[in-house]
């Protein structure tokens, strides 16, 4: 009991640093969730090209970034690029690296959902006289996005949790501050437990929003 109140006092003393770290975590997670979403939709759009070579490149992009550990990519950019005179801040490396990675995963969710669409509807839309772009924005995307809500929101949760690895390239987010704290007071167990609880709390919020979104956007009679 003593240990816990002691620890909470340490947290209180360091609250400015911890809150700053939390802000950095949320900044990174929110940014890559947005850029990764937009990127995923763009990559998904590219997979629909009838150009065989174009499709090959898009498929390669998705496979490459799903198949490569994100950490390798972050290290490559943060520690590798300066060799060629390119120096990027930890935040920028994180945003670029995560976006490339998250967009690939999101594109994969969307292409999987796309395979479940009724091609007859897409043909009917073309027969009505819609342009390819209108078919995409009015029929394909609204359906594919709704079918992908579970995958896409799960990715947002992963973004929040995985953002903690950015501390390995000197991005001082929440987990980095926790490390700092525990290195000073040596209460490692309490520190990591505290971090786990904070992440769990944030994830719960995302889950609640996701459930709400899913219930609201479900296509009647269609299971994702």
């Amino acid at each position: 009991m003593m240990a816990l109140t002691d620890f909470l006092r340490d947290v209180g003393n360091d609250s400015a640093l911890l809150l700053g770290g939390l802000r950095s975590t949320l900044l990174l997670a929110t940014t890559i969730s947005i850029t990764g979403f937009v990127g995923g939709v763009l990559v998904f759009f590219c997979t629909l090209t009838s150009n065989r070579i174009g499709r090959y490149w898009v498929e390669s992009y998705i496979s490459f970034f799903i198949g490569t550990p994100l950490l390798v990519l972050l290290f490559l950019m943060y520690y590798g690029l300066p060799q060629w005179g390119v120096r990027l801040s930890p935040l920028w490396v994180s945003i670029i690296g995560f976006t490339l990675n998250v967009a690939a995963y999101n594109a994969r969710y969307l292409t999987t959902a796309y395979r479940g669409l009724d091609t007859g509807e897409l043909e009917a839309a073309r027969a009505q006289g819609f342009t390819s772009w209108q078919v995409f924005t009015l029929i394909t995307l609204p359906q594919v996005l709704r079918l992908s809500i579970p995958g896409l929101t799960n990715q947002v949760i992963l973004n929040l949790k995985d953002s903690s690895i950015a501390f390995l390239i000197q991005y001082t987010e929440f987990f980095a501050q926790i490390q700092e704290l525990s290195a000073r007071n040596f209460k490692f167990f309490q520190a990591y437990l505290f971090a786990g609880i904070v992440y769990l709390g944030l994830v719960s919020v995302i889950v609640l929003i996701a459930r709400h979104l899913e219930a609201k956007c479900m296509i009647p009679g269609v299971r994702g």
Partner: peptide
């Protein structure tokens, strides 16, 4: 100018 009614009706389900 052509109204096409498909076999499976192809209504937009969303």
């Amino acid at each position: 100018r052509i109204g096409f009614v498909f076999q499976q009706f192809a209504l937009y389900r969303h």
